[in-house]
Computed example of a mutant assay.
Amino acid sequence: MNQVAAAVPIAQETRARKDARDDKLFGWMLKACALLVLASLLGAAGATLWGGREAFSTFGFGFLTSGEWNPSDDRYGALVPIFGTLVTSFVALLIAVPVSFGIALYLSEVAPAWLRTPVASAIELLAGIPSIIYGMWGLFIFAPFFADHIKPWLTNYLGNEPDDGKVSWVAEHIPFIGKMFGNDNPFGGSVLTAGIVLAVMIIPFISSVMREVFQTVPTRLKESAYALGSSTWEVAWDIVLPYTRSAVIGGIFLGLGRALGETMAVTFIIGNKMKLSPSLLDPGASIASTIANQFGEAAGLQKSSLMALAFLLFVVTFIVLLIARLMLRRLAHKEGR
Rank of each mutant, 00 (worst) to 15 (best):
P218E: 12
S121C: 12
L280Q: 00
A16H: 02
D282M: 15
L93H: 12
D22A: 13
L79G: 06
V191K: 06
E54N: 11
V209C: 01
L38E: 07
R17G: 02
F205N: 01
T193I: 12
N2C: 08
G159H: 00
I291K: 11
I133P: 02
F176P: 04
I174R: 02
R258T: 04
M274T: 15
L306D: 05
L254S: 11
S286E: 11
S286L: 13
T85K: 04
P186S: 03
I103D: 03
F253P: 03
G128M: 01
S121G: 12
T317V: 04
L241H: 05
T65L: 11
F63E: 00
P112C: 09
C33T: 09
G62L: 05
R15T: 08
A104H: 07
I287R: 08
F83W: 10
S72G: 07
K166S: 11
I249M: 13
L241S: 10
M29G: 11
W28A: 14
N2Q: 14
L321V: 05
V170H: 03
A32H: 01
F26G: 11
N156D: 15
F83V: 08
I270E: 06
W69E: 07
W137Q: 05
K31R: 13
D23C: 02
M136F: 10
L326Q: 11
A225F: 10
G27Q: 03
D163Q: 14
N272E: 14
R258H: 05
P162K: 06
K24S: 07
K18D: 13
W137N: 06
V170C: 03
F187W: 10
F26I: 09
S279Q: 04
A194S: 15
D164P: 12
I133K: 06
N185R: 10
G195N: 09
K273N: 15
L260H: 04
L254K: 08
L241C: 03
G296A: 14
E262W: 04
A5G: 01
A288P: 12
F314D: 06
R211H: 13
D148T: 13
W69Q: 07
S305T: 09
G251N: 09
M29C: 10
D164L: 06
R116Y: 06
E54C: 00
Q12E: 05
A16L: 10
A44I: 15
I177Q: 02
G296Q: 13
L276A: 06
Q12R: 03
G102K: 08
W28H: 12
T65C: 05
G84A: 10
R258P: 01
W50R: 11
I249T: 13
